[in-house]
């Protein structure tokens, strides 16, 4: 990582090639993976399949990964995004079951997710616990609380025919031709991307992650921004929880954690492989696309189901290794 600049200059043409490879690494990786799957499976490059990737795999992971991107951008990480999803989901399902209007239930769900974020914010900004440990603690406590709320972890089902129309719409409807989950994911992606670049909040959050001392010396109350960031992370994750619940019409305790590792993966892939070299929504979305396409492509190959997980891991590992080696050899950064 710490090669000297002279070395980088000596790398010459090789360096230029490597640098541009790195610059577009993620897009390149996407294209290569895309090409490979188009070549080896007949069904991959069909409209219906690509649609199914965008509708089934993409939206939820994208939303959770965007939430994660905020946490990572502020210099931390949030291991409790799944917990925020679960709490949102639980509040949502319980209130709908109790006969409350869907809008109220959804608001309560969002509030529940934000509450998880606020708990993290308290630990991180007020007490000063490191985000990794704070959110790890939240994850564990959240798991227990959910088991207590559900008599030891029983799923809460919604009766299939007793579900309000709005609820069904959230999971399976379409908005301006887009499936609702995808539309929501796109809205969140665009809004957060703009937020990062064009708002004071976004820029300060990013600066805290990149150079915390500068932020502090500038007289900015970094802890307040970090706290707000983690509440926002909980809120965005809660949106994911609502969509998950509306799609499957059931709340399963601790089910949100299934997204955790992939969200971390997508965020870090986006961070390391993007020309910006810092957490950014665009990179994260490309990372999510890469993960979704790999998962879908491997599903279409005749590969044994269990080999698919090995394949996913190996592909991601290869992409990461290549990019890091590339960066070392080329740009000298």
């Amino acid at each position: 990582m710490s090669l000297t600049t002279t070395k980088a200059a000596n790398a010459g043409l090789h360096g230029v090639v490597a640098a541009s490879l790195l610059r577009y690494g993620l897009i390149l990786a996407l294209i290569v993976v895309f090409a490979i799957f188009s070549a080896i499976t007949p069904t991959f490059l069909t409209l219906t399949n690509l649609q199914s990737v965008l509708v089934n795999n993409f939206p939820l992971l994208a939303i959770i990964s965007i939430a994660m991107t905020f946490a990572v951008a502020s210099g931390g990480i949030d291991l409790s995004v799944g917990t925020a999803m679960d709490f949102a989901s639980f509040a949502f399902v319980s209130l709908v079951l109790a006969g409350q209007p869907v809008a109220i239930a959804a608001l309560a769900g969002l509030a529940a997710g934000a509450l998880v974020g606020a708990f993290n914010a308290l630990l991180i900004s007020v007490i000063g616990v490191s985000p990794f440990l704070a959110t790890l603690g939240t994850l564990f406590i959240g798991r227990s609380v959910q088991q207590l709320l559900t008599n030891g972890g029983n799923p809460v089902y919604l009766p299939p025919n007793g579900v309000p129309e709005v609820f069904r719409f959230l999971g399976h409807g379409t908005l301006a031709g887009f499936p609702v989950p995808l539309a929501i994911a796109i809205i969140i992606a665009v809004a957060t991307a703009v937020m990062f670049v064009h708002t004071r909040f976004g820029r300060i959050t990013l600066s805290i992650g990149i150079q915390p001392s500068v932020v502090r010396y500038s007289g900015i109350a970094a802890p307040a921004y970090i706290a707000a960031t983690f509440v926002l992370v909980g809120l965005i994750a809660a949106v994911g929880g609502l969509i998950l619940t509306a799609t499957v019409t059931v709340y399963i305790p601790s089910s949100g954690n299934a997204f955790l590792l992939n969200a971390i993966g997508a965020t870090f892939i986006g961070t390391t492989l993007s020309p910006l070299g810092r957490p950014n929504v665009g990179g994260t979305i490309l990372g999510v696309l890469l993960l979704s396409i790999v998962a879908n492509g491997l599903l279409l190959t005749d590969l044994n189901f269990y080999w698919q997980q090995v394949g996913t891991g190996t592909l991601i590992f290869a992409v990461l290794a290549l990019s890091f080696i590339n960066r070392k050899a080329g740009s000298g950064a």
Binding site: L261, G265, Y306, G313, T314, I316, L320, I325
Partner: peptide, 27 residues
């Protein structure tokens, strides 16, 4: 190798390895 020689951050490197290893166990 991933962390020291390829320079991938440990959190990410071992996360990817975890996926591969868990997959191999399933296989």
């Amino acid at each position: 190798i991933a962390v020291v020689y390829a320079g991938i951050v440990p959190l990410l490197a071992t996360l990817a390895v975890m996926n591969i290893v868990a997959g191999l166990e399933l296989v």
